Computed example of a mutant assay.
Amino acid sequence: MSGARLLILEGDGIGPEIVAATRTVLDACDAAYGLALRLETAEIGFSALDAHGTTIPDTVVAAARAADGVILGPVSHNDYPPVAKGGLNPSGVLRKSLDLYANIRPARTPEALGLPGRAVDLVTVRENTEGFYADRNMFEGPGEFRPDPDIALAIRKISRRACRRIAEAAFALAETRPARHVTAVHKANVLRISDGLFLEECRAVAADHPDLRYDEVLIDAMAAHLVRDPGRYDVIVTTNMYGDILSDLAAELSGSLGLAGSLNAGADHAMAQAQHGSAPDIAGQGKANPVSLIASVAMLLDWLAQRGTLPEGAAAAAAIQAGIAAALADSATRTPDLGGTGTTTTLADAVADGVRRAA
């Protein structure tokens, strides 16, 4: 038994429900594969704001840094008060504080759903620490400002270092996939300097991987191509905002944003995070689909296995994916967003049963 220490942060809205569902699956993995997990919890979001005056206390960041991995529930950061009053975005804070530079977002059509149209099987590798995100590109203060009441300006930071390491992450991932194909998405015909720098680094890394296929597509064209023929693509690498948008599009094309796993990874830390938001309108009703967070935790277990921290994690991750596939095949366990009659709990219980059967 190797064990791993995981910090669990429930978040807001449906966060506590899908985190509880994910813990059901983790407990099944722990028992079936002898993971010897050490699970810790801490408050973030509105509950932390009420108790500590901030949506993410410094103690939580320190605990995340000390853990082997983090599980983050969705947060309602758009509803938080201003930063000066404690309304920080926990996701952004952790991505910056732990240097989680690669946001890995797979999109794959589940066979069980029998969706019409062309199958999707691709991964978006999104740069996670700079770009147009106002909280991630300045040493002090946000990257947006208003010089007068009628003008708003935004700064986008693109650095050679960030471009190089996200390109390296994408090509390393492509080496493990059958298609062995990387597509860099950009808008260098307009953003000639910043997206031009991104492409320089992608081309340099591509030259180090002559055995992989490499091409480049404009962001607007890519949105159209994904709808028309997503099967053309394998690993998509791009900057922060483009990647956020394209990965959501790919997730919907593959079945639902509620099925989309997402891992934020860096050199030393990783964080599982559902790709969707906190959906406060359905909180507490048992309707929330927990698969996105469960699939994200499978990615975290696999990441820990690759690092040698949790050798049994790879088998557990594969069992989770098999459990998800089996659960989605039954309309009685699927949640309403997937045309089923199940609940958050029944879907999690079905995935956990699948894990136990796979062991």
Rank of each mutant, 00 (worst) to 15 (best):
F139K: 15
I151N: 08
G86V: 00
R65F: 12
I104R: 01
G87F: 11
T183P: 11
Y101I: 02
T129M: 06
I71H: 03
I193D: 08
L113T: 03
V83E: 11
R118I: 15
P90N: 05
P147M: 07
E140Q: 14
N137H: 10
R156W: 10
D135K: 13
G131E: 08
I155G: 02
D99H: 09
P74E: 02
L72E: 00
F132Q: 10
N78D: 13
A162M: 09
A107M: 12
A64C: 08
P106W: 11
R165F: 08
P82I: 01
T183Q: 05
A179D: 13
A119L: 15
A84I: 01
V93M: 13
G114R: 11
L115P: 07
L173W: 07
F145W: 15
D79P: 00
P147R: 08
R146Y: 14
V70E: 05
P149Y: 13
G117L: 11
L153G: 00
L115S: 09
V123I: 15
A172G: 06
A67I: 03
K96L: 15
A184V: 00
R105I: 00
N128F: 12
R177W: 12
T124M: 15
S194P: 00
C202A: 13
L72D: 02
V190H: 06
V205R: 02
R192M: 07
A84H: 01
A154Q: 12
R95K: 13
A169E: 12
G196N: 05
T109M: 10
Y101W: 07
Y80F: 15
F145H: 12
K187H: 04
V182W: 05
K85G: 00
G73C: 03
N89G: 05
P116I: 10
E175T: 10
L197Q: 03
P82Y: 03
V190Y: 04
P142F: 10
P106L: 13
N128Q: 07
R177D: 10
S159R: 14
R164V: 04
C163P: 05
A206Q: 03
R156N: 12
I71V: 15
S91E: 12
T109E: 07
R165N: 04
L197S: 02
P178T: 11
I166W: 02
A179W: 06
V125E: 04
V70M: 07
E168T: 06
R160C: 03
I193A: 13
D148H: 14
P90K: 07
D121V: 09
S159M: 08
R164G: 01
A167L: 02
A134I: 15
R164Q: 11
I71A: 02
D58T: 10
V182T: 06
A167C: 05
G87L: 08
I155Y: 12
G131A: 08
T59R: 14
V60I: 05
L72N: 01
M138W: 10
P116V: 09
H77E: 02
K157C: 06
R165P: 03
R156S: 09
G92R: 12
D58A: 14
R161V: 12
